[in-house]
Simulated scan of single mutants.
Amino acid sequence: MNVLITGGAGFIGSTLAGRLLREGYRVSIVDNFNSAYDPALKRQNIRRLGPAGSVMVYEGDVRQPQFMRHVLRHEAVDVVVHLAGLAGVRPSLQNPTAYFDHNLNGTTVLLDAMRDTGVSRVVVASSSSVYGNRVQGPFLETDPADEPVSPYALSKRAVELVCSQYSRLYGLNAYCLRLFTVYGPRQRPDMAISRFLHQLYRGQPVRLFGDGHSQRDYTYVDDIVDGMVRAIRRVSGYEVINLGSAAPVSLLELVWLLRDITGRHSPIEWQADQPGDVPLTYADIDKARRLLGYAPATNLREGLTHMVEQLGKPTVLSLS
């Protein structure tokens, strides 16, 4: 099976590519290596996948129709995994237009290119942020998702709706996977756990927003990738599916765990709540179990320990 991963040089994309290569899939990648964070980290992710030629890498943008049609035809793609786009709730508050352009317009251009080239299966990364400002869980895929609280969340919900329409109108097979706070080696340096490690190893205060009681359903990247591989094999029709750990943890508990694992005990510096942040994410994963055989296997302590071991102190200290 030939799999094209858009955004394949990033954290989740490169981890998925490695898993697929080990299992004998043919993998190609589209990535524009933008400056949302250091492009050198993304190029390093590509090098980790093996010698030049192990993976065909196309440097370009999913918003370019001719480029995407060329890649899809040239690679004889069977399934697309669509991870390209702009991530992050807080940055989206500063530049909503860019998020709608990259995430919504980029997805629409990709789906049109797939329709033009006869590629009918796609697995799309959505986000737990579509559930909005919820205080009780777990979150079910059938719950309302019509009040997102950030441009990022809105763009991801719009992507789901576009996929649903293309499935109805054009027979697209699309699984939209709502990912719940993915962490692990190669995590983006702007994400919370990476920032906390940076602060701990530098002896800087750990900056927490709010009162520390907000909860996240932290999910180890290998569990997410396992769910994605299962979706690649099974995608048929249109479905929205949660991929999480179903075990939310408070921000304070997370910091205590990181202090314990690293042996560093920097003080906490409290910051005001940030617009767009939500008090809780909590995945109901019954549908993922039923449709995909999904079963997350890594608890938070294990995942954080593995992340710290893989990163190593020098790498953590180099984060910007």
Rank of each mutant, 00 (worst) to 15 (best):
L200K: 00
I241V: 13
I268V: 15
L254C: 08
Q215Y: 06
W256F: 13
L161Q: 12
F196L: 08
T219R: 11
Y220V: 01
A192W: 05
Y218H: 09
Q187D: 11
Y220H: 14
A247E: 15
A174Q: 00
L177P: 07
D260M: 13
F209K: 09
L254Q: 10
L251M: 14
I193T: 07
E269V: 00
F180V: 01
V255E: 01
T181C: 14
R202S: 09
R186M: 08
R195Y: 01
D217A: 12
V249Q: 12
L177T: 00
V240C: 10
R216A: 12
A158S: 14
T219L: 11
G210Q: 00
Y238T: 03
R157W: 07
S236A: 06
R233N: 09
C163P: 04
V221T: 11
W256E: 14
H265E: 14
G263F: 09
F209Q: 13
Q187V: 03
G263W: 08
R234D: 00
L257E: 11
H213E: 13
L252V: 12
G210E: 01
L251W: 07
V159D: 06
G237N: 03
S250K: 04
S164V: 07
A174L: 05
R216E: 07
Q187M: 08
M191F: 15
V221C: 04
N173M: 03
D211W: 04
D273V: 13
G171S: 05
G244R: 04
V225Y: 13
Y220G: 08
R178S: 02
G237L: 02
Y170E: 03
G210Y: 04
D273P: 04
R202P: 06
T219N: 06
R234T: 05
S167F: 00
N173H: 12
S194L: 08
S164K: 14
L200E: 04
C163T: 01
I232N: 02
L257H: 11
A158H: 07
T262A: 13
L208T: 11
H265P: 06
D273N: 12
D190G: 15
S250T: 05
E160S: 02
P267I: 01
V182N: 04
S236T: 03
P185K: 02
G203V: 04
W256L: 15
F196I: 11
R230P: 03
Y170N: 04
H265Y: 15
H265C: 10
Q215V: 05
S194G: 12
L258S: 10
S214I: 01
S250W: 09
L252H: 11
R188A: 15
A231K: 02
Y220S: 09
D222H: 12
V240Q: 10
D223R: 08
R230T: 03
P205L: 05
V182C: 10
D226Y: 08
V255F: 08
V221L: 02
R188T: 07
L257K: 13
L243Y: 06
A246F: 10
S250G: 07
E160C: 05
M191G: 10
V240M: 11
R186W: 13
I224G: 09
L243W: 08
P185C: 09
R178Q: 02
P267F: 01
C176P: 06
L251A: 08
P185Y: 15
L177C: 04
